[in-house]
Design a binder for these strands. Structure first.
Lengths: 196, 196
DNA sequence: ACTATAAACGGACAACTGTCCGCTTGGCAA
DNA sequence: TTGCCAAGCGGACAGTTGTCCGTTTATAGT
């Protein structure tokens, strides 16, 4: 196992240049206004090289989010076992809304998809899988500790995350004028309803 | 008011031909495998004509769904006032899951989007707006009648609909192996938690 | 019937995505 | 050091989306 072959030096350099160029261009012009060709040109690599590393713009966004995601994961792990599971879950939902506020552009970039395969790919993404497993774990724990009862934790984990998906979130924030606190509070009320 | 100018005869004929061609091609090859140019060619109209009527493939899918949507709307209206609001809502969620099963391909086509504008457009779509208003109305009614209490109906309406969005639905059905009944039952449990 | 004109038409075109493939090169083994 | 070759590279290219604009046509008014 662990057949991980190390990346060749030129390949690592290309990856670094691509990510740097993408970070700069996305920041300056917005994700949607930058084409993959522009990223390649700015990074000084050809299309083949670009697409070899990142199959599409969403991959690039996901890679750029990597660092932020690790911060989030560490914060979650640091809280482990420190309080009631349901309170930790409430905190996580709040934290995800903050993540949305801070990383909306890249999260949005990950959701651009031209066919069903791409759209479903979102849910297979390791970040989503981790969130899903984490939320589900908290729900399971809350059931074990008799904080709540009678729910399908696997399904409800998806429901809670769907409620915070970036497209809906932006729509609610910008077009419906809801604020972050209201959205989080409403989800917490929903969880409260499950209290045993 | 009602400044509705009638569609010119040639325009109406084009629309008819486009919808017929799209219905056939989407049915035969799947929405994603058919390009807008192919639809135009099959319909015997140019690109200009095609895009004049339907700004993008999602519009075309929405138009093809029109009839099914009207059936759904009439069914909902027929149930009006016939029972407790919360039961009507439970029924509607079940009905939406059936709609997903039957119209997944076209619903999916409406979600293909290459930028944020397009992604948010989904929520402005009249069908979504109607669903949203309907679910919210049922929740408001349930609060009035003291069936439930303490919830943000406007927000929860979006949550319930997000829980049934076609991408998540397909993922749960096909990759997680959940069945329709389980998904609907879990949402109903969630609603039960809100009972006063 | 005739004319004016707004609406509709169609296809060329520009931009973007993603793939393919022949050339180049880093790194290992002899 | 040399030679090998898998990995990497780049840019041409095919397919798609969506726009633009010169031409045609339905229809209302005379």
């Amino acid at each position: 196992m662990g057949g991980e072959v190390v990346e060749r030096r030129d390949a690592a350099e290309s990856r670094r240049r691509i990510l740097a160029a993408a970070r700069r261009l996305f920041g300056e012009c917005g994700v949607d206004a930058v084409s993959m060709h522009e990223v390649g040109r700015a990074a000084g690599v050809g299309q083949g090289t670009l697409y070899r590393r990142f199959g599409h713009k969403g991959d690039l966004c996901a890679a750029l989010l990597g660092e932020e995601i690790e911060v989030l994961m560490r914060e979650v792990q640091a809280r482990e076992e420190s309080e009631l599971a349901l309170e930790r879950l409430g905190w996580l939902l709040d934290r995800i809304s903050v993540f949305n506020e801070e990383n909306g552009a890249l999260l949005g970039g990950m959701r651009n998809a031209g066919d069903e395969e791409r759209r479903v790919e979102m849910y297979r993404n390791p970040f989503y899988a981790w969130l899903r497993a984490t939320v589900r774990g908290m729900l399971d724990r809350a059931v074990e500790e008799d904080e709540i009862s009678g729910l399908d934790a696997e399904h409800i984990a998806d429901v809670l995350l769907a409620a915070l998906n970036i497209d809906l979130y932006f729509y609610q924030r910008r077009e419906l004028g809801m604020d972050r606190e209201r959205i989080v509070a409403s989800l917490n009320q929903l969880l409260d309803g499950l209290r045993a």
